[in-house]
Design a protein around this nucleic acid. Sequence first.
DNA 1: GCCGTTTTCGGCCCGACTGTTTTCAGTCG
Length: 570
Amino acid sequence: MENSVVAGVFDEIANILDILGENPFRIRSYRAAARRIADMPESVTAMAREGRDLTAVPGIGVSIAEKVREIAATGRCAFLADLRGKIPRGLPELLRIEGLGPKKVKLFHERLGIDSVDRLEEAARSGALKKLPGMGGKSEENLLGAIGRYRAGRGRFTLSTGIEYAESLARFLREARGTAAIEAAGSVRRRRETVGDLDILAISSDGPGLMERFFRYDGIEERTARGGTKSSARLACGLNVDLRVLEEGEYGAALQYFTGSKEHNIALRGRAAARGLKLSEYGVFRGERRVAGRSEEEVYAALGLPVIPPELRENRGELSAAEQGALPDLVELRDIRGDLQMHTTATDGRGTIAEMAEKAKKLGYEYIAITEHSKAVRVAGGLDAKKLAAHLRAIEKAAGAYPGLRILKGVEVDILPDGSLDLDDGILAECDLVVASVHYRFNLPEKEMTRRIVRAIGNRRVQILGHPTGRLILERPGYEVEMEEVVKAAKEHGVVLEVNAHPSRLDLRDTHVRLAVERGVKLAISTDAHAPSQLDLMRYGVYTARRGWAEAADVINTFPLKRMLAALKR
DNA sequence: GCCGTTTTCGGCCCGACTGTTTTCAGTCG
């Protein structure tokens, strides 16, 4: 069973306990455990079945370990079933509406019998809500807006959307007079796969002027707050942006604080407290005196640590690694020497071989691989053996025009439902590079899907496993597969796992990258480009690899050609 | 519910903002 499912159980428990008005610390424990489990690279139910000690996992104690074992054994959780009976089915969903927390959900239900988004909207429209204590016309109005946004599913955005707006806003604001620093913090800076909003921090000698300019930004739809140090707005795309103007002496502390993650900050604050210090967004304090805050270097140094790269700040062991001087030397975009998955007009790509090669040259690459779909992918016009053979010759011919760039003759062959490949051995043997991927029959039971992929990995022609879970961020979850088994098989057969750099895929995801790195399995960061411009998406794959603690040595397309080819051998 | 070089009991991060108040509750990050 996927960890996200187990995490979902504990999140739901937390939500219901929250509405019931339970002890907030007990609720926090369930949420912390849920988050911890979702982040674990190993399958927690598998650990339970193997009889391993789950209480060794931080955040999991006797009670939650017991529930995990129950879920692993029976697929259900009696405690949750019991809780569900205590409140109407629709209440937990209401918590997902912006500005609505457990107290109000409870109040609305007790006083007006509201148990669904529809009934909530009705009550808001009829003016019934504003008569309740603590509510008023403004609250009602805001709630209606939030319901609309919730319905539009505008909650989160892909990292690329977040980064594009963050960079555009920063460029725009940098032009304001008196702006000394401008930077996006938050999940964008940590390069999380999705972002909920933007936190932009600034130092300015003219705060009001900067706020003024902020509200003149083109994409702004609505001003939602305006204060001396903080203003907020919602962009037309639905993204919320906070702009904070800070003093020089607190900028580093604020950058650290607003970059998060929350979990990293909590751990860091605990570390501060243990040293008789207090850490807040205003600095590191000993008593009343600020001892650090100007820069992140200063803040971390005051706590006896080197600066931790933002991508690692998830409280997944980065603090102890930093303490021991064992932080990884993370892979960087400039380490990348080539791109090992892309498509051309021969199938569903929108660039010719020559156009892809031109773009690769501009990026300074030493090599690329053209990896066309195989015939099972009908919608993409996948190639059969005969057409692929012709295409391989076309690649050879085109390659002559690019002496400094090695163009590998590749294929992205489909993994059929039984784990066999869509093309036979003869034609695969003619390719320099075989990437194998799943493109249909996603709904196999986990065991079968795992068998399917593991069998493909066992095929001696396969060198890279493409987008290993098949997910599309914010659109569909990946297929159910035991990643532990996949990584194990990859290790055994010397198969490389792809980190697909497309912002909607980022697959392997960060926690799976970490698992692969820990097990010594090599990675390839590939854009899967379907147009020349998409070769620029490489940065997102690098971010994801960094979030998984990958170093250049873990990523084969940071190697020079000869060494890269050697790494593909199996 | 979790956790422990001060604790196996008694803590658990902490401050800003909003909308409602007449000193604060709820939500958010």
